[in-house]
C-alpha cells in the first residue's frame, strides 16, 4: 500500500536527519584546536543546495502527473454516482439528487469499471473519503457547497467499501458515513 511506503520513506529520512544532527553535535565535542570548523563551507553549501534542488525537482516531476485530477481523464466511466453530503450523512444515487428533496439509494458498482463520483454538499464543507474493505483510505475528494467535484476511480477488488467524512463538519462528524458494494 502507498501509505506503508510513505511511512517507511519518512522514517528513513527522519533517521538520516537525526544521524546528521547527532554527528554534527558530537563533532563539536572533543575538538582539537588545530582542525576547527568546516573547510570550504560555501562550496559545500552550494553542492548541498544543488543536490537538494535536483532531488526535489525529480520528485516533483515524477509525482505531479500522478495527481488525481489527471486520472482516467480520457476514459468514459461505466457508472456515475451522485453524492450529496449533508450534516451528517451521505446521500448517494445513480440519478441526480434534488437538493430540495434529497433521496438516495443503495449503490453497487462494477469491479474494474471506471466509476465517476459527482460529489457536492448541501450545507457545509465535507470530505468524501473512500476506504477499501481492509479499512485503508484509497482516494478522496472534498464536498464543497455550490460546486461538484468529479472523482474517478477503478475498484479492482470486490467487497464493501466505506465512506467517511474527513472534513470536520460539526458535532456528529465522526459518525458521518456510508458504504457501497463493488461486484
Amino acid at each position: 500500500m502507498q501509505q506503508n511506503s510513505i511511512l517507511l520513506l519518512f522514517l528513513i529520512l527522519a533517521a538520516l536527519a537525526t544521524i546528521t544532527f547527532l554527528y554534527i553535535y558530537l563533532s563539536s565535542k572533543n575538538v582539537e584546536l588545530v582542525k576547527q570548523g568546516m573547510e570550504n563551507p560555501l562550496k559545500k553549501r552550494f553542492w548541498f543546495l544543488l543536490i537538494l534542488f535536483v532531488v526535489l525537482s525529480i520528485f516533483a516531476s515524477v509525482t505531479i502527473p500522478k495527481s488525481p485530477y489527471y486520472l482516467f481523464a480520457d476514459e468514459t466511466p461505466a457508472k456515475v454516482v451522485h453524492v450529496s453530503a449533508m450534516q451528517f450523512a451521505f446521500i448517494m444515487s445513480e440519478n441526480a439528487i434534488d437538493p430540495k428533496r434529497p433521496s438516495g439509494q443503495a449503490i453497487e458498482v462494477p469491479a474494474n469499471g471506471l466509476v465517476e463520483f459527482r460529489v457536492t454538499s448541501l450545507d457545509v464543507n465535507h470530505g468524501f473519503a473512500i476506504y477499501n474493505p481492509e479499512e485503508r483510505l484509497i482516494t478522496q475528494t472534498q464536498a464543497m457547497p455550490g460546486y461538484v467535484n468529479r472523482l474517478r476511480y477503478k475498484f479492482s477488488e470486490p467487497g464493501t467499501y466505506k465512506i467517511f467524512c474527513l472534513e470536520y463538519c460539526g458535532m456528529a462528524h465522526q459518525g458521518m458515513r456510508a458504504s457501497f458494494i463493488v461486484k
Binding site: P68, A73, E75, T76, T120, P145, G146, Y147, V148, R150
Partner: peptide, 12 residues
C-alpha cells in the same frame, strides 16, 4: 471526452 474535474451547480 474533454474532462474537467469539476463543475458548478446551476444557480449557485
Amino acid at each position: 471526452n474533454i474532462f474537467s474535474p469539476t463543475y458548478r451547480l446551476p444557480g449557485t
